[in-house]
Design a protein around this nucleic acid. Sequence first.
RNA 1: CGGGGCGUAGCUCAGCCUGGUAGAGCGCUUGGUUCGGGACCAAGAGGCCGUAGGUUCGAAUCCUAUCGCCCCGACCA
Length: 483
Amino acid sequence: MANDKSPDKITPRAEDYSRWYLDVIRQAGLAEPAEVVKGCMVIKPHGYAIWEKIQRALDDRFKETGHQNAYFPLLIPESFLKKEAEHVEGFSPELAVVTHAGGQKLEEAYVIRPTSETIIGHFFAKWIQSWRDLPLLINQWANVMRWELRTRMFLRTGEFLWQEGHTAHASHEEAVEEVKRMLKIYAEFAEGHMAMPVVCGVKTESEKFAGAVQSFCIEAMMQDNKALQAGTSHDLGQNFGKAFDVKFQNKEGNQEFVWQTSWGVSTRLIGGLIMTHSDDNGLVLPPKLAPVHVAIVPIFGKGGDEAKVREAGASIEKELKAQGLAAVFDTREHKPGFKYFEWEQKGVPLRIEIGPRDVDANQVTVKDRLATAKETWPRAGLGERVKAYLDTFQNTLFERARKRMNDNTVRVDTWDDFKSVFAGENSKFVMAHWDGTRETEAKIKEELKVTVRCIPLDAPEEPGTCVLTGKPSSRRVLFAKSY
RNA sequence: CGGGGCGUAGCUCAGCCUGGUAGAGCGCUUGGUUCGGGACCAAGAGGCCGUAGGUUCGAAUCCUAUCGCCCCGACCA
């Protein structure tokens, strides 16, 4: 029995948003703190199953667009990081360094990769000689480590899983095209699979990747109206080409540095997924990423009823699986109510109850993860109906999230309005004018903890004046508090 | 790295002030009765009280050191 004191309750969002977030993760069995390893987490089977679905969907898109997977070492010579000035400056505070191995101090320390631009640059230099070797389109699925002072499960942990694409091109135009292509893939994945609407944009100088010429990103709005950077795609220009001497002979016979890109999404996406859809009852998952689509819960009833309920449940499971759906017939020794709570907390999109009364009436009782009331559906044609319903549900989640984002995106023109939107812990997506200087950005960040999340790609030209300084601006940018 | 908090059963915690040899709820095991929104009864298992010293006849409790974790700030996918 669960009373108010038991630790398996989910704190309501309105009461304490970060407690809620952690409670959802715990109750859904997604992950838990690694405890004995600072700032790290254990991704549990249900959480990892979601990651595998994310991997599968993205990997397919990467392959379709001509990329190949490869794997580079976890350990990177310390000197490599130092070859690109901005890169080392950006990453050195969060590096974990291996100084000893085999019982001896190493001649040169290794850093545990925080990202792989440098070591991949080293190998690209060996692999690329001619324009015929380009473009070189590589992706790596890997773990990386960034020693963060303050961690939150999935959103920021010492070690995390991701994919990092690394490509080399013969021209800047071609590289920029790649950067935008991959950003688009991220956006389509976020919206189409995660049902998480995003704003595509360009990072400002101070927010861009250390070592990039320009960083593109997708930004999503969480339920507390804070922004989450959900994916990035970088135009590296020739910065790493020059640092690692990655040259090719062009068609004119001249040596030229390659133009590189890198792009990545991480297990942070799971954090975004949680904070986009979940509610006070636990996780809510879009069908396209749900490891289990349908939980079938039997109600066994009086003695003689059990056999027919078992049979009916098994046949439903079989029919749903024939539709390509992940269905679980939950015959564990628990009360039905217990199972309802559990599957709800795990975010299963649809639940089907089957009891003696349903069997007798040739029907099932159905409840989707967001519904407040149950419905009765005929048993006949159930497989098709469920499959179609899940598509609708996927769409419902997306529309719901998009409405929330739109409703909380506002245009602001005065500094007073700007301050009131961000008063206290409040945030929104604020479209406002900015004079484009690092100083103004820093002042706003200092005063309100608000940053320019990005300059949206679809922001129209619109003359105006900076919300803080009153200096001229040519377009609005996206401001928000962020994770 | 600054400020705060906490280490006692699988989990959440009480006990510590005022030393006397280990507790609760949940969870777990077994048996039975149950099953349309977190079942009930009964019987059990489970802890050298973070670690190392010290004080004492005696330490979860007092002292010292140490390690770890969480929260709040400065940095970040």
